[in-house]
Nucleic acid binder design. Structure first.
Lengths: 341, 341
DNA sequence: AGAGGTCGCGCTTGATATTTC
DNA sequence: CGAAATATCAAGCGCGACCTC
């Protein structure tokens, strides 16, 4: 037999129940539950005890309905993006201490961004934080007309007025990677890009610019890619087919770089002895001892802090968008890069 | 200049606003917004138009507050578990067509399961679906005393009355893997286990049982592991150090198997020519062309369907827990297994 | 300062009133 | 005239802001 629950299903206790049990008014219970001032120490204790006994929990919805502020930040994220998971960790860590709750809405197969944001709006979020949104700028602008919107990791210049943008300096990241390789003595550096993924265009541009700056414009070699391991593997195969091999490869991200590493291993091409490989993101993957990938790290805690901070700033008085917040990436040198043979 | 929003910040339109604009009562607007019967076609159109014009959206919270049913399923998941992401996709796919909304609450560093479930309860979820919960059985029983609780992918027998359990037959999965290897001619089959991870004990047991059934009890070799790539790599190194190498390795999951593969590649041990490797989960990773991992697939759509189904069944009348729902896994044969040399 | 009373947030939901054939 | 279709009314859901004692 299951243990007798303090409160059977379907009969959730309310403020009034606690009040009755403690022999006080509901208003007082409300005060106590919110830790507001206006209640004596003795009563406070009695109320808390009564609440405990009957298993009372404040109803968040009723609460939000009544108070004009909801202190709710809606976050849209992609279920299949580990990078979004990392950002979410950071967002929780910043938002909750600041007194804001997070409402999550996932983008998944069969559940597009429109559905995700609609759910968030219906939940009365005060602001939206969108991780790597793919929606057209017009849609973002439309949302921004209704409430503060922060776009993380997607560049949007001018086309979506009112949208706050928080992103990594992707071009600078690519530049740092190229600089590092050139410093090691590389000249033939190929780039397997990210196609139409957020940030891909900037990384591609950063790569090109950096190559030119080192007088290597004629060595520029961009291969079409994407954001998965498979895209990296495909790119690596293309490199193997077209001899000679470059001495270094800059992949769009760590997942792609992993595909590159794997392909080279199978082809008996030694990394970093024959070819150096650099990733992007500094994901958990890159840090694993047996991958040990040199990569461009995004400052995830900082991105999360900025995203939440911008949203809150807009909610708490700031009228105008601050424009872009661009966070510098940093190079993390590990074992997949070395001087050319 | 940003486009003039239909509704400026902070003045969210309500039913009453729509009613005033359409010249009808709020009750009627409510009927129209819910697509309920009781409104004429012409009025319906007029109301919808008015709602559209002023950018009205129903307030989900007020709605839930008023109606006795909330049709809200709370789902707790781990941010760093790709397997949970896959399950979530399935859960969305089943729940929304059934008329239920999903409230997400993530477990992350600094945000434990208690916090996660508390948030869900405060949100007035009608039932809880917990993905791979690690909380003590007593806590789960306590929750089950308040509302229907479904635990996915964690075994709980007897110790947590009232909790519905949906899980894969992990022991059977391990058995199928061993059977496959034995059929190929393997006898020296090692198992790098999952330590204390959910399902690890069952997989370990399934491995042992299957080995015994094939009269290979004396070849049983279990190495301590875990659920990450690193754990697999560590196990593989241990195998390499202690000659002779087994002819086949069963890893706890695909991530662990990836670590094993990588380690063997680096050590110039050919897979599957010298050693066969099997994973568990049939994650996206395993399917990648360049990994091509033989693995034990969990039936994610079925797990999701059962989890949501059980929760809804309990909400819609069924009084008693149905006990465990155990889903059969299936072997997915790819390129990392072959006969021994 | 500590306490209670009251109203209404935005919505749904019976019961009730008005129409139409 | 009565059933069915439309529309309205009024009462809260659980809570917090504000007022009073």
């Amino acid at each position: 037999m299951p243990p007798t629950p303090a409160v059977p299903h379907g009969k959730r206790p309310t403020l009034a129940d606690v009040a009755a049990r403690a022999g006080v008014s509901t208003a007082l219970v409300s005060i106590v539950m919110r830790d507001a001032k206006g209640a004596g120490a003795a009563t406070r204790e009695r109320v808390l005890e009564a609440a405990q006994e009957i298993g009372y929990r404040p109803d968040a919805r009723a609460r939000l309905l009544r108070s004009h502020r909801s202190h709710l930040l809606g976050v849209q994220f992609g279920l299949q993006h580990p990078f979004h998971s990392d950002l979410l960790e950071g967002i929780y860590a910043v938002a909750e201490p600041a007194g804001y709750q997070i409402a999550l809405s996932a983008v998944a197969a069969g559940r597009g961004e429109q559905r995700a944001t609609d759910a968030l709006l219906a939940d009365r979020c005060e602001a939206l934080i969108l991780l790597g949104p793919q929606a057209p700028a017009a849609r973002l602008a439309e949302l921004a007309g209704q409430l503060p919107v922060v776009s993380v990791a997607r560049r949007l210049r001018g086309t979506a007025p009112g949208v706050e943008v928080v992103r990594t300096a992707d071009d600078e990241g690519a530049r740092r990677a190229v600089d590092h390789l050139v410093a090691l003595g590389h000249r033939d550096i190929a780039h397997i890009d990210g196609g139409r993924a957020p940030g891909a265009a900037d990384r591609r541009r950063g790569y090109r610019t950096a190559m030119s700056r080192h007088d290597l414009a004629d060595r520029v070699h961009v291969l079409p890619g994407g954001l998965t391991e498979e895209d990296g593997a495909t790119g690596a195969h293309a490199l193997l087919d077209a001899t000679p091999l470059p001495t270094a490869v800059l992949a769009f991200n760590d997942r792609s770089a992993t595909g590159v590493l794997d392909t080279f291993l199978r082809a008996r091409v030694s990394v970093p002895d024959e070819v150096s490989v650099i990733g992007f993101d500094d994901s958990h993957l890159a840090r694993l001892a047996h991958i040990d990938l040199t990569t461009v790290g995004q400052d995830i805690p900082r991105l999360a802090e900025l995203a939440v901070g911008r949203a809150i700033a807009r909610l708490e008085g700031e009228r105008t968008p601050t424009g872009e917040a661009v966070v510098a990436p940093h190079l993390v040198i590990r074992g997949t890069t070395a001087g050319p043979a």
